[in-house]
Amino acid sequence: MSAWSKPAWPIRAAVHAFVYILAATMLVPFAWMCSTSLKTDAEAIDVQQLALLPAGSVSDWKWGNYVEAWRLAELGDVYLNSLIVAVVVTVLSVLHNALAGFAFAKLRMTAKRSVFIAMLLTMMLPYQVYFLFAYILCGWLGYVDHLHALIVPFLASAFGIFYMRQSIITVSDGLLDAGRVDGLTNFELFWHVVLPSIKPAVGALAIFTFMASWNNFFWPLIVIDSQENFTLPLSVAALSSGLYVQSWPVQMAAATLITLPTIVVFIIFQRIFVQGLALTGMKG
């Protein structure tokens, strides 16, 4: 315990101050975003005075900015697109990765070792070198400017398979043998024995996959052209380049509508988030 003995109070105060200032830095941009979103255009760009809150009482604030932002950026459709893509990708890719991970961890497979190593090598490849032909391929398949292009290439991932394999390998063989004696097929073993025993890892991978899909920008920018197929990041980028509207308050209202759900979801699930990501780093 003496190693963690309390330092003198000035040091403790300094450490607290430092950390709190850093934490405040994390919040200030979002607070400013919310504040701007409720101002009038004139207020927002009033350089004479720095107003932290919009003028007037709460009912005077320009709540209409939100209505305008929602309508102009067609956020309803954009949300739906993002949600469809992220949910489908998460469910299917976690399932596929877990199945392949099970095969690599516990099943007989011709050339298992060399295939596994080859797969690990693909994890090192930067997307800059393969996105070109992935795009051309999507063109041949008729996926360009279609949500398919955001789903099909992501139905499995080398990282996901690797991560699932590392977790499944810790499941006891005795448990699997017992299931086998009971006459379970490989798939039933996977479903009833393996999956329930690696729930935390599955949760972590699901969160990771969902976030990656929800926030992906480069690939949608490459393959999606029409606004009706935009996902959130594309829509934000279009907003920030002033495609729909030049008004900062309306833009910030849109930014709030886009970031707020993520913030709320994160705060609700933060335990799983943080533990899951810590778990990911541990395996990596």
């Binding site: 199945l99 099970f102 499995a156 699997l176």
Partner: peptide, 25 residues
């Protein structure tokens, strides 16, 4: 686990996705 079905039955599709959209490109 002694089994009649090879692990390839489970791994083939996920690996195909990686080959088609990452390795070959």
């Amino acid at each position: 686990v002694r089994s009649s079905t090879s692990g390839w039955a489970f791994a083939a599709f996920p690996l195909a996705v990686i080959v088609v959209f990452t390795a070959l490109p």
